[in-house]
Amino acid sequence: MRDPENAVVEVELPADFDEFWAAGLAECATYPLDPVLTELPALSTDKVIVYDLRYTSYGGLRIAGWYTVPRGLPAPYPALVTIPGYISEPTVPKEWSELGYAALAVAPRGKLRSNDVFNPGYPGLLTHNIVDHHTYGYRGFYLDVVRAVDVLLDRPEVDAERIGLQGSSQGGGLGLSTAALRPDVIACVAAGAPYLCGIMTAPTLTRSYPYEEINEYLRAHPKDADRVRETVAYYDGLNFAPRVQAPTLLYLGLEDDVCPPETGFAVHRALRCEKQLHTFPHCAHHAGLPDVMRIVEDFLADHLKPGR
């Protein structure tokens, strides 16, 4: 029998982990953010105004997003960055603006609306340049989410003291990395079934995709195992978790075949911030959906206070 709560999941912390990410953030800062918002009346409703968003991120790539704000409510608004899953495209986050948030659904590089330059495909993203942490495909992807936070900070209708992160799976994993990289800004994180945590352990616990991509890669390139391990350590949620300062909600399915619960418990142990953990027996990667969304909404409302 598996014992997810007590399983040992370890990731080596690269000696230059903080310097590596500081360099990435510094390079991002050399590019003007240059956000462009275009109102989309056809997608807007009587409750929500919808915008197409474009901004510049790491490497000078233009990144897309959907940005929504409540119609008819007084600003400033609390804000959310919603982060997509591995195979998902970001949807227009009207439902969050109906609750009173300015919401930015980011499409990091490689997603359909941000793939003019970088398009590793699916399968593909997880192992793109996985032997080199400097050029690993996820480097820019992670930083694109951080830059989405900068977009919110640039918006006059957003209260900079009330910016949160929300996502599940890849969205959960990148919620943790983004909170760690912007501890001065992020007010709270809701992370479901976090992916990209215990990256080298997870493929030994499951045969499900996307982690199966790593098994396939190592089947084809068995001599690269050490280099892969070295690379992904820079991207592992277990190394970001101790750097998260914002209150964090984690929720896990105890039969999650996509992101094994062992890795979720390990993240929870590694978090040193104020934290909540909700676990759902007999649940897989949905991790308690749809009911868990009530917990998520309450957690975000407690910290971000929409309608205040």
Binding site: G253, E255, D256, H282, C283, A284, P290
Partner: peptide, 9 residues
Amino acid sequence: VTHLDGTDN
């Protein structure tokens, strides 16, 4: 459907 997706799967 139970929405216990491990069980459902």
